[in-house]
Design a protein around this nucleic acid. Structure first.
Lengths: 244, 244
DNA sequence: TTATTTGATTTGTGATCACACTTGCATTGA
DNA sequence: TCAATGCAAGTGTGATCACAAATCAAATAA
């Protein structure tokens, strides 16, 4: 009987999965999470358990638990009908999210600025180069890659703040603002070029100088951009809609 | 066929449950939440799905979903064994939690100080009286009532900050620091009298004067107390354990 | 043609079952 | 006596089923 167990826990398999096998539930959760941060779902979109279960090639059980988790961290919204949807974008919510992000991510980067090791600073410096690479082949604007790189850059910094409490909160905030960001980035692309790398360079410079206040200010400028841009866009649309 | 539906959705029943029937899952979730904030579970305690299901008189289904939700908001901890427990208290975690609470609850009360209506201020003023009532019958130190009143006071303020993003974060922080707080309050009781009402009075005074900075400072003093107290207690124990 | 109703389909929720893994205890061996 | 092995109870996870509520569409009546 223990044979089967021994087969799965032999040295080779043990190395492949050293601690804690991955559950389907976690896979589904991470999948949905990635989709939300990346803005693959659009605001107000309704999600169904069975639909997601089919799409993710599993039963309804892991999906419903993953949805429940995402609802508690406000990444999704439970309607009184008991259906769940991606929260819609409103001006109030955007301001609210931006304020919270400035507060918490600002604190995290201020902490990180005094704690990052030369090794870690080298890592985020090397990420600056990737922006230049992307700019080189500008014929294809790869929004997915932009989002991924931006996320990797920020969280490399946040991880260094050393707070096991703040980091999950920041993840939750990104989860909530993911749909807005994607909309904003597309709007950016339409409006012309924007230089994310420039803002990131300023951040890296401040961190390298262990300038906590400078890093915080640079970060605020960086994360405010898409919000203020999207805000003016929404206001313009609202005014147009009002006149029609 | 719709008869049965009509019976349950007739005017009377509709008034009793105007929006969204309560699900067993939510009941379990709120129950566990209340227990955690109130510190009814002790740190490092292991919880089992079937055990909780029996205690809450339901099946395992609602419990596992509630546990999953609590794990994502770091109120509970998933061990590699796949068992779940209340996170243990460490000095690092306490400092981490306190810093986050000062940051976020401080911001919330600063916002609330400029937005609370006279009606709302009257409400929190009336809560001050309850502390005096409790003090009157000091023969029975009702820790549960202290915890509940303290919670009601703080959240009456936080709700007034008008941020749908900050409030859930604060709830999550209370959930995480609940077990610590309970331990600290018991330690308080052993160490003698402490005047929570005094700190709350200072907070109310600042809010009534719309003094955002004063309210923030008073709040920091209030929420720091149990943490610094528990910290010195843990450090003393650690030193004693080290010498033995 | 339009509004109402009836029926069928879809959906979320809770319960139960099957399976794999862990844990703890008792038995067996040196 | 002590360590190791084997068995049994307990536990989490995923799948499936049953049921009630909601949604949608077609048919009927005005």
């Amino acid at each position: 009987m223990q044979k089967a167990t021994a087969d799965k826990s032999d040295p080779i398999a043990a190395q492949l999965a050293p601690v804690g096998r991955e559950t389907v539930q976690d896979r589904v959760y991470l999948e949905l999470r990635r989709a939300l941060i990346g803005g693959l779902f659009e605001p107000s979109q309704v999600l169904t358990i069975r639909g997601l279960a089919d799409a993710l090639m599993t039963s309804t059980m892991p999906v419903r638990e993953a949805l429940g988790r995402l609802i508690t961290e406000k990444a999704l919204e439970a309607l009184p009908n008991r259906s769940v949807r991606v929260p819609p974008i409103t001006l109030e919510r955007m301001d609210d999210l931006l304020r919270a992000r400035i507060l918490i991510e600002g604190e995290a980067i201020a902490l990180a600025a005094t704690r990052m090791t030369p090794r870690q600073i080298t890592t985020i410096e090397s990420m600056l180069g990737e922006w230049d690479e992307m700019r080189a082949l500008k014929h294809k604007k790869d929004v997915d890659r932009e989002v991924t790189l931006n996320q990797a850059f920020h969280f490399e910094i946040y991880r260094a703040c050393g707070s096991a409490v703040l980091i999950p909160m920041i993840e939750s905030l990104w989860l909530q603002s993911g749909p807005c960001i994607r909309v904003a980035i597309y709007a950016f692309s339409d409006a012309g070029e924007v230089d994310t790398a420039h803002y990131h360079r300023t951040i890296v410079k401040a961190i390298a100088a262990q300038d906590a206040k400078g890093a915080r200010d640079a970060l605020v400028a960086d994360i405010s951009r898409p919000f203020t841009f999207l805000r003016s866009k929404l206001e313009a649309e609202a005014k147009k809609g009002q006149s029609v």
